[in-house]
Every structure is written in C-alpha cells, then in structure tokens.
C-alpha cells in the first residue's frame, strides 16, 4: 500500500511535469490548448487520487481541495504566463491560497506572517520592479503580441521542468513514506492558542536558529546598504555653490 502511494506520487509528478512542459510559452510550435488541458486534467486527477488515499476521511476536504487546486493552478500560471506582471500576480494568488491552507490546519500566525512578508512586501517589490521595466500595453492581437521576446519563449523548458519535477516527486515520495513522530510534544491547547505556543517554542527550543536567521538577515541588509551606498555630491566639482534663489543666474563676486 505504502509503495503504491509512492508510485502514485511519482506518477502525479510525472504527469504534472508533462503538463507544465506543454503549457510553457513557446514561439515555435506551441502545444495545442486541448493537449495542455488534457495533461493538466490527468495530473490533477492523479493528485486528487493520491490526496484521497492519503487523507482518508479527514474533515474539511472540500476547502482543502479547492485551495490546493487554486495554489497549484496559480503556481503553474506563474511559470507559464508570458506576461511577467500577471505571473507576479499569480504568485500573489499562490501565497494567499497557501496562507488559507495554513489557516485550515490552524497555523494562523504562519498564515499572517506569510501574507505580510511575501504578499505584502516581497511580491510588491517584484511587481514594482517588473512594472518599472515594462510599460503596460493593449492586449489586442493576442496575448503574445505585446509580450517581449524573452517572455514569449521559455529558455530551457526541458531542463527546468525535469529538475523541478524530480525535486517535487522526491519530496512527495518522502512525505508519503514518512512516519510523523515527535510532534506530540508540540501539541497546543485551544485555550493557549498556536501563536503563543509557537512564540514560546521559537524562543526556547529553537532560540539559536532564530538568532542565526536574524543575524543572516542583518548581514544581508548591511551588505545591501554597502553595495548601494554612494555619496551623491550636492554640487558638481568646480561649480560654485549657489543659494536657491540664485540658481540659474550667474553671480560674479565683483
């Protein structure tokens, strides 16, 4: 049974890889929409089968399925959409539905942190940079008409899909096989709440990891400032310093 589940996980990953490979934007011979849809449906079916076997009669399955399908669909569109701004927005969708999945299992703090950090800060910067790089454009003449050349054609579709989905398949196989023990000691009560318990665990059992993460972030910040720091002179060399009212007219000392 276990073994079969592992193979099912591998099969789902392989079908997903095929679907994503077909869906990646290509200028030469893009796969027909029917092929892509069939592959996506097959991959989703395999995944649902796997999930059904894994979860059994676990409750809240409808929400779980809807949210995980949203997450996966968004993630696929992140890599296959030819317009970077839309890809970034699909990334936002992935983050939001992942946060909702976390709420579903009772990890509200992680959900809020994910939304604040990723959707609220990092992805805003992504969108910001992408928008600075590209002007928006009318969409007439097909979706590909306005996308730039390097967005219309994915660069190494085969290698990327292979690497990505081998990783996905391996992780899925391990998760399916893994015996989840040692979690009981971190069980929380409803009265205490997960946030409080998480804070306590992070600052006692895992204090060193938290400190190290903080140090890493500080180092990264210092590095960023050191790279970006550059003194901009208020005046060009040789140019006389003028009071604001005097700028534009020559003031001769004699």
């Amino acid at each position: 049974m276990e073994q079969m589940l592992v193979y099912l996980a591998y099969a789902a990953a392989a079908l997903g890889a095929l679907a994503v490979y077909a869906a990646l934007p290509r200028e030469g011979r893009p796969a027909s929409r029917g092929v892509v849809l069939t592959l996506v449906a097959a991959a989703v079916g395999a995944l649902l089968l796997l999930m059904g076997q894994l979860l059994g009669e676990a409750g809240q399955r409808v929400y779980f399925y809807v949210l995980s399908l949203l997450t996966l669909g968004g993630a696929v569109r992140v890599v296959t959409h030819p317009r970077p701004v839309y890809a970034a927005l699909f990334f936002v969708m992935v983050v939001l539905s992942t946060a909702a999945l976390m709420v579903l299992v009772g990890a509200e703090f992680l959900a809020a942190a994910l939304v604040i950090v990723y959707a609220g800060a990092i992805l805003v910067t992504y969108v910001f940079v992408i928008m600075l790089a590209q002007q928006s454009a009318p969409q007439s003449g097909g979706m590909f008409a306005q996308a730039l050349q390097y967005d219309r054609d994915s660069r190494e579709p085969m290698a990327a899909v292979l690497v990505g989905f081998v990783l996905v398949g391996t992780i899925a196989g391990v998760i399916v096989n893994y015996e989840w023990t040692g979690l009981a000691e971190y069980k929380t009560t409803a009265a205490e709440g997960n946030t409080l318990a998480l804070g306590r665990v992070l600052l006692t059992d895992f204090a060193v990891s938290v400190e190290l993460a903080g140090l890493l972030l500080t180092v990264a910040m210092v590095g960023a400032i050191a790279l970006a720091r550059k003194r901009i002179p208020q005046h060009d060399e040789g140019e006389p310093e003028l009071a604001p009212g005097e700028i534009g007219k020559r003031v001769s000392p004699f």
Binding site: V85, L89, V92, A99, E108, F109, A111, A112, A113, V115, I116, A119, G120, A121, V124, V127, F128, M131, S136, G193, N194, T195
Partner: peptide, 25 residues
C-alpha cells in the same frame, strides 16, 4: 480570531496592489 492584529496588518499590506495595478494598467 487569535491573530486579530496580525490579520489587520496582513490585510492592510495588500492595499498597495490596488494602487500599483491601477496606476500601471
């Protein structure tokens, strides 16, 4: 909710998107 305040922070941090998308599009 258990994370009342964080919820507000999370929601308000999403407010940038409307402005940015409106301006860019």
């Amino acid at each position: 909710v258990d994370i009342g305040l964080l919820y507000i922070l999370a929601v308000s941090s999403m407010g940038v998107y409307g402005v940015v998308l409106g301006g860019w599009s």
